[in-house]
Design a binder for these strands. Structure first.
Lengths: 215, 215
DNA sequence: TGTACATCAGTGAACGCGCGTTCACTGATGTAC
DNA sequence: TGTACATCAGTGAACGCGCGTTCACTGATGTAC
């Protein structure tokens, strides 16, 4: 029960201060109105506390993604929804996201994070099964994940950058870029010698003929 | 002269220890074989030191990108080279990259980092001028940047993830995904009601006709 | 050429701080007889 | 029903540590007369 309170306070501290530096045992304990050593009754040490905080965040993210993906029939659309949910989750909980994805080192949280990754791999596999994507689902997933993670982590860590006003449009653009790019890249040969003007002209005529489903 | 030595030692410390936590005034001073307060003769405080270290890294990255982009005629290929150079720079200097791009807060380094961003915007603008890309170059740049930054920052911060062996292939896939995706996304309507099976079939027939230049 | 002086990079000792962690303890709770 | 006891969450005080930073200082260097 106190354990729950400690975890909630730790998250609240992150949110209120906006930095993980504020996540100290002393601050957490003070916030629960308890002495510092009490925390050790519930967590082996500071790392254990941080790990527990992360676990909750992963769980929440995983729940949102699988829930959102399950709500749509078409695998291509479902994949797009995964991406949007992911981005919005990150922007809704920037410090937690930072804690999850940008901490210095290694060897942690294999189960929870790979579960999340697994959801996306499943969504991608559904797309390779349906024929819209081709190739190794894991590599495709890494590409998609990179695009979305890159966008939100830039937004989070570079708040002073002159971002456009409409963040949703930026997310939308990134989702479309990643989706269309994956679908096209897996269909094109890796090397050739045409020039970019020819490519542009061909893409133009092709785009006219396409009837697209929004990813 | 000592200032130079301090900066070089700071970078060496980062590289050797693999973590920015090791970048303390005491450690830097000790490495130059000088007492700690001496550092204050050359840097106002610790932040100033860190900022100076970052500046050098930005300069190096900017030099590499503009140099590499200038070496190619075709704007589309030049853009692709920018992406590859960026990714390889990050993987060559992972801790420095982390220092540049993943530090908690704000209000820093406007000139150097926006110079780098500017190089890419220029490369993208060349592509919109040539017709291979369309739309706001800054938004296009953010998308491309997101994909590459996402990939390398995942590789750097999640070393324990079961990455595929061939990292170059992963970079290649991401560059292609981002490039093709940008080119296709800017040509397709944002909303429509076709389903993904139709989309897949059309992409297939269209891909057969395409003669592509590698981005 | 020789002396007096200003400059300033580097020194050595110390400061206060917040941190994670430890230790022996207290005091309420629930169970066994 | 009443007493003795074990359990264990939470306490209070203290530890050692490394950090950024400060201060008055020293001693070599170069310049002015």
């Amino acid at each position: 029960m106190l354990r729950e309170e400690i975890l909630r306070s730790a998250e609240a501290l992150l949110v209120e201060t906006g930095t993980e530096d504020a996540l100290t045992l002393r601050a957490v304990a003070a916030r629960v109105a308890v002495t510092t050593p009490s925390v050790y009754r519930h967590f082996a040490d500071k790392d254990a506390l941080v790990e527990a905080v992360c676990l909750r965040v992963w769980d929440e993210l995983g729940a949102r993604m699988s829930e959102s993906a399950a709500a749509v029939e078409d695998p291509w659309r479902a994949l797009g929804r995964c991406g949007r949910v992911y981005a919005h989750f990150a922007l809704d909980y920037p410090i937690q996201y930072r804690l999850l994805m940008m901490r210095p080192t290694a060897g942690r949280l294999p189960t929870a994070s790979t579960a999340c990754f697994g959801y996306v791999v499943d969504a991608v596999t559904a797309c390779t099964n349906s024929g819209i994507l081709r190739g190794d689902p894991e590599i495709l997933t890494v590409g998609l994940w990179s695009a979305l993670h890159g966008l939100v982590s830039l937004l989070i860590t570079q708040p002073d950058f002159p971002w456009p006003d409409d963040l949703d449009a930026l997310i939308e653009h990134t989702v479309r870029m990643a989706g269309f790019g994956s679908a096209l890249a897996c269909r094109l040969p890796r090397d050739n010698n045409a020039n970019s003007a020819e490519f542009a002209a061909e893409l133009d005529t092709l785009a006219d003929r396409l009837t697209i489903v929004k990813p």
